[in-house]
Amino acid sequence: MSNVLVFIEQRDGKIRKASFEALTLGREVAAKTGGALGAVVAGSGIAGLAPELAAYGAAKVFVADKPELALYSCEGYTAALDAAVTAFAPAVVLVPATSMGKDVAPRLAARRKVGLLSDVMSLEVEGGRLVATRLVYSGKARATVTADPGASLQIATPRPNVFPASKGAAGAGEVVALDFAVTIRAKVVKMDVAETGEIDVAEADKIVSGGRGIKGPENWPVLKALCHELGAALGASRAAVDAGWIDHSHQVGQTGKVVSPTLYIACGISGAIQHMAGMGSSKVIVAINKDAEAPIFKVATYGIVGDMFQIVPALTEAVKKSKA
């Protein structure tokens, strides 16, 4: 085992946080395998990103810079990753488990006929193979999964917000331009970006979520004020989404987004198993619910049994005060 290659996701020339987490993890894996750390990034006009990646320890930065890669396409970005695999001959490839990463990594795995450890919460190297854990069955069980050590390549997608990102001994950051042919059949023709200033729950470090207890869309400002003070994203239960009170992109859970923030505040959410499937791996969970028997208190770190319309505004004030 030796070289480790990390797929870097950028949007509008800005590297996404989950990529720094994967790169930091890659550096740790490379220290164990004794190989070099490489990064690969695709896009248009992105050659300037290399120094940022070197600061995290990348010895080589493979750059796929083409006008037709300006917007993401699975075929285009997989071709870039595949070309970097050919050039760098890594033993391990890490791709952040974002919507982009979970699109690109399986295509690469199928192209190379190797396995993929998907959406992992921990990752070790044991006897030349990757060993990881992942949550299954709505978080009701944890599976230990391993890659075939005999495979030409082992691929894993680390879950965002689970592994810390930190700069390390700077790598050389030698830029290697990738040259490859690409045919894109599934073309992203447009990207509709959500309301400006909104943080997506899947990327947020803190989330304040509301459920049926919010009673109606007119009450979101109560939670949004707390979001604003905390710099948190606004989440929702399916009950709130299905009632038409908020867009599905906010939904957390089995049929929504899976999130792992450091802080998750559930307001007026009962804590159904399908909701917990989406937020059970949050580091600290706060439950605010008027029903002491609500299952959410079984997973919560801190709980307040009471009326959210009294507690949440008080909490907003308390956070504001603590910052003053």
Binding site: G115, K140, A141, V145, D148, T301, P313, E317, A318
Partner: peptide, 26 residues
Amino acid sequence: AAVRWTKLELPPARQAVKLIPADDPG
């Protein structure tokens, strides 16, 4: 199989919730 499940276990239990009395919301 290219990927093997070698172990399946119940996830570690979370610590019991710390409840904060709510008589005075502030």
